[in-house]
Nucleic acid binder design. Structure first.
Lengths: 134, 134
DNA sequence: GACTAATGCAACTACAAAAGTTACGTGTAT
DNA sequence: ATACACGTAACTTTTGTAGTTGCATTAGTC
């Protein structure tokens, strides 16, 4: 696949679903369309299910479905569901000796965190249906 | 190190330099402060030099220095210098069979590209000196 | 009840990006 | 001449993630 594939796969799948919200889709179908395989699809969509964006049903005629109207699912919902933190680092900074150094590190982290937040806000301005729609 | 380490290392170093713009620093000094090693530092700072943010001098008493006043170096400058594309994918999409599918992929890519742009814009609003300063 | 088709999940392999490391060439001040 | 610094190439190590296989569980269908 490519980089940022989880986010890309999630958006792709959700946008696709937004077109026919009532249709149930299997992991295999989705995997075929996305050029990947069913287990990867389940892994990614599982995250979206945990976040309440999708529902899944086992057994015969089971599969995936949107849990809410697509107008009501923002890109930020998806991003957060996947635990992506593209900008900020989930740092385990190994406590630098110097305290000035430590202060500076917190500065940098703080700035990146702000940028991360503004990214999420920006993502919140677009819904899945808009991705498909126009 | 941690995730997003190149950006983090670059910002850290530049912020540090912003404090004493006239001082020349060696890769070793910087590496010690950042908890990494000189070659990695040279790799990252080399990108910043290519982008005109830093200068380097070889030989005895050589080292790294800011190429411009720190007020005049934005986070976007740094981000772009490193060729980071945190949101958008540098996709080599393997041409999907269905053309509808292809259209949708372009949609998703387009949206991510927009988000990427807005991220750069946001980064452009902060300078290196502000990171250190307040 | 047997069969089929779907998710859920664990364990493993494969691969790629990046950090870390070593080594050596080049340039420059003393 | 020497010491010190960058520039760069080649290699190893680490890590994140996709891909794969296998099997348990669940739910319709015959």
């Amino acid at each position: 696949m490519k980089r940022n594939s989880r986010l890309s796969l999630a958006l792709h799948t959700l946008s696709h679903m937004a077109g026919e919200p009532d249709r149930v889709r299997t992991s295999s179908d989705i995997a075929d369309h996305a050029g990947t395989n069913p287990v990867v699809v389940r892994r990614v969509l599982g995250k979206l299910r945990e976040a309440g964006l999708l529902t899944s049903e086992k057994g015969h005629a089971g599969g995936w479905r949107l849990a809410r109207p697509p107008q009501n699912i923002s890109l930020a919902d998806v991003y957060l569901a996947l635990d992506e933190r593209l900008v900020a680092s989930d740092e385990i900074s190994e406590a630098p000796a110097c305290s000035v150094e430590h202060a500076l590190q917190k500065r940098v982290s703080g700035v990146l965190e702000e940028i991360e937040q503004s990214l999420v806000q920006k993502l919140g301005e677009t819904s899945i249906s808009e991705v498909r729609g126009a």
